[in-house]
Write a protein that binds this DNA or RNA. Structure first.
Lengths: 213, 213
DNA sequence: CCCATCATTGATCGGTGATAAGTTATCACT
DNA sequence: AGTGATAACTTATCACCGATCAATGATGGG
């Protein structure tokens, strides 16, 4: 019988279909500890336990690996933003809490954050051509969740700026600056971290909202 | 005569001592057009008109070239910050102008800015060991000029926060976020750039200063 | 005129991302 | 069991990278 045979996945030497996950895990681990540029495909392959060319069966390019990690990082961020939006009401307190969700995400997932927002993508556009703008689309997705929250604040008449996109981009930039600097320049003589974060978020809140000086 | 012979610079084939400047000029030009990672020492050498190993007579490492460019760029920033401070009076207008000096500098020297604040320095510290923190120190020099301006605003009783370091770090993070994202994510669907900058600076000003809602 | 000096170079090293061709193992089907 | 197709993987290799080194060649001093 076997009227219609479903192609079953083979698992010859390694764990088969999980191989791709193993590669991503190894890559993220290595990127986190050694930095993106200093990690080679051979190192990734060695950690997975396969030969270096074997990677290219799952990813066309090294950049594709980082792009995939980037997309996943954004997915996590989207998840958290949606959670934050679930019990959101347009108040200054909720607003600050949403900003903190972003900061906490970045600081709790510094590796993912690095890959998502701090990776240098060549100016000539070769990266974009090869990898497509899927990572960018994922980023915009996360951004839009944030925009929805800002939109609710605007609708409640609490924001200084009526343009949601503009205000969201500004706030995002403000948050990203703090997170990226804390991650990339951990050895800078920062003021105590929690104090700095609270101070920064307060500043953004004062700058964004009306009548909460 | 010639009681004391000054070592006269030799100019065997090229222009001698100016060679170093030529290298820096070529490197900056290439970095600007093609991005930091995709430019090779051979390309730099070819543009200067010398062989690739000849570079290493002037710079110990490729990173040293970028570091030198970075330091020079920040010298310019310090210069601009001091110029901004020269005719600075503790008003909201002057304050915004100072913020804009930083943003303009970053956008006009994206490669130097990258090297100073956005380049991934392997967490193992190999980069730092080779090149030192001279680029970052140069950046911090500019940071301190900025702190002086914030200090004047505080002394005039215009800031929300009395702690100058804390406030300066917060503002710096806010500015850095905008600059670094505009540089690294140039293809993001940003609101019109000038508008976004103005909006961002206004937000930071509202968040930092009292009674200028 | 010769020599010491030093900027400069071709050759080369280990390492990189990526490709091509060949090998092995598993499958469907007889 | 045997066969062909194919997926998974490997070895060998390519062009290029940053960096090093012995050799080259021009220069100025004695």
């Amino acid at each position: 019988m076997t009227a219609l045979k479903i192609r079953s996945p083979r698992k010859p030497k390694g764990q088969g279909a999980e191989r791709r996950e193993e590669i991503l895990d190894a890559a993220l681990k290595l990127f986190s500890s050694k930095g993106l540029h200093t990690v080679s495909t051979r190192q990734i392959a060695e950690m997975v336990g396969i030969s270096q060319p074997a990677l290219y069966a799952y990813f066309a390019t090294k950049d594709d690996i980082t792009a995939e990690l980037c997309i996943r990082a954004f997915a996590i961020l989207v998840e958290r933003m949606e959670a934050a939006r679930a019990d959101f009401r347009p108040t200054a307190e909720c607003f600050e809490k949403a900003l903190r969700v972003y900061v906490d995400f970045g600081l709790q997932n510094p590796d993912a954050y690095r890959v998502a927002f701090m990776v240098e993508k060549g100016l000539d556009g070769t990266y974009k051509e090869r990898v497509g703008d899927r990572p960018m689309m994922a980023g915009i997705g996360a951004f839009q969740r944030f925009a929805e929250i800002v939109g609710e604040m605007r609708d409640a008449g609490l924001t200084h700026d009526d343009d949601v996109q503009r205000m969201t981009q500004t706030l995002w930039a403000g948050l990203h600056g703090l997170v990226s600097l804390l991650i990339a320049r951990a050895d800078f003589p920062w003021v105590e971290r929690e104090v700095l974060i609270a101070c920064h978020i307060s500043l953004l809140r004062r700058g964004a909202l009306k009548g909460v000086a």
